[in-house]
Design a protein around this nucleic acid. Structure first.
Lengths: 233, 233
DNA sequence: CTATATTTGTGCTGTATAACATAGTTATAT
DNA sequence: ATATAACTATGTTATACAGCACAAATATAG
């Protein structure tokens, strides 16, 4: 793995959330232990079963967190956008990683040893609250997600996935094209359905003038309708 | 709601986890603000949408945490056993409750204002770590659960629910009868299926000599087989 | 630049499971 | 004690969705 020296990035700029919380001497500690790593498209960042060691902050690119299910079928559990933190849950829970993470596209990640993070949490209660809040929010999202994935039908689940992608990565300058190009397979494993059904449902959405497709580019035409479909299930 | 004076319980005995962490003066603070409440069978402890105010610790009884899904169909998100803490996630996330909680049977809960808990977290980093760990573990469980509920078939999901109940509430003195009597409907909403399918699958399990039924009493005959069914999906 | 692999798109078939119906049984209330 | 409501049980039907097959379009590699 490449060290921070290899990349001419002010990685502290990306660490805003935590940076703001820390005192000067704590920032010094963090700076001395942080390193910046580059991952190529589809490269694994960590694997299910690995021993967690780092708090990671996504500086550039996109990351998917996924989990292998029954019969090798994998499911995307969450997706990380820039300046989001990830990879710390398992360490705090004193478990091995239950999920894997891989780079969706060329990605830069800042890594801070959890040993150091733990130490900072111990001496800075604001940082403790930061993680408590983060975990609490994520747990809420996970609970919502469970109900959505189990109770909604394919249309609802796909609509929701699209809305989630808009929310996470936004739209291009035209204000319509999704700012992420993912394979149908990924869209499927994000909305818990087979690839064929993702493809099929997408083209139904096209025929209903909710979206248009150009290869992997997805243009959102009628977000309101998506919202309605997602809500009704 | 009844105050602690109404119940002659040494509620601190139930708060072991947190109690052990606190210093004497912190214990004093907690003791002065804790109150003990009794809930009748099926009584709501808090509702989806409520403003969270208390850290709750289950001293006696059983509690289900559930969530309303599409078309009023509700789903059990988790179940609480004695000396487990609950009700704090939403407060830390600065959200309203996303779930509801109700007493499964006659239940006693100790409540501590989150305002006080937050204050203690601020001054005692061990308590901060306690919540960080708790939330991290729960988030892992939620992720596992999502995959299990979405990818496994009814048999696998029901088997898993039964194993979960053994794990959470244990067995009676005979070493076989589940120590919780729940309606088929609850078993269904725990394993994400319709009541009819829970009933049907249960009686299939009976015919396969995996369990026996006597009304709501469920006797586990072949736990190994349950484990196998759960694993295969 | 071609060859090979991967991804996408559609149609068809099978099946798991939801939805409904109905009856018997057990709780709950008055 | 009796009436009413809620739960349990089982059979039948309907349907959403997975699974497969195959062709076309893209992407990737040598």
């Amino acid at each position: 793995m490449a060290k921070k020296q290899d990349y001419n990035i002010d990685f502290t700029a990306g660490l805003t959330d935590i940076w703001r919380i820390l005192k000067d001497n704590e920032r010094e500690i963090l700076k001395n232990h942080a390193s910046v790593h580059h991952f190529k498209k589809n490269q694994m960042i960590y694997c299910e079963g690995d021993q967690p060691q780092y708090l990671m902050c996504l500086l550039k690119g996109k990351v998917k967190i996924f989990k292998e299910g029954v019969g090798g079928r994998y499911q995307i559990i969450r997706m990380i956008k820039t300046v989001q933190y990830f990879g710390y849950r398992a360490y705090f829970a004193e478990e091995k990683y239950l999920t894997g993470a891989s780079a969706f596209e060329s990605t830069i990640v800042c890594m801070i040893p959890m040993r150091i993070v733990s130490e900072l949490v111990r001496i800075n209660s604001d940082l403790a609250f930061f993680f408590i809040k983060q975990l609490s929010v994520d747990l809420g999202i996970a609970d919502e997600r469970t109900v959505n994935l189990t109770q909604k039908h394919v249309r609802g689940r796909l609509a929701e996935a699209l809305l989630f992608l808009i929310d996470s990565y936004g739209l291009e300058e035209d204000g319509a094209t999704l700012n992420i190009y993912l394979a149908r397979e990924d869209l499927a494993s994000l909305s818990n359905m087979t690839t064929s059904n993702a493809i099929r449902t997408l083209s139904i959405f096209v025929s209903e003038k909710i979206i248009t497709l150009d290869g992997r580019k997805i243009k959102i035409i009628d977000e309101e309708k998506l919202r309605k479909i997602s809500k009704l299930g």
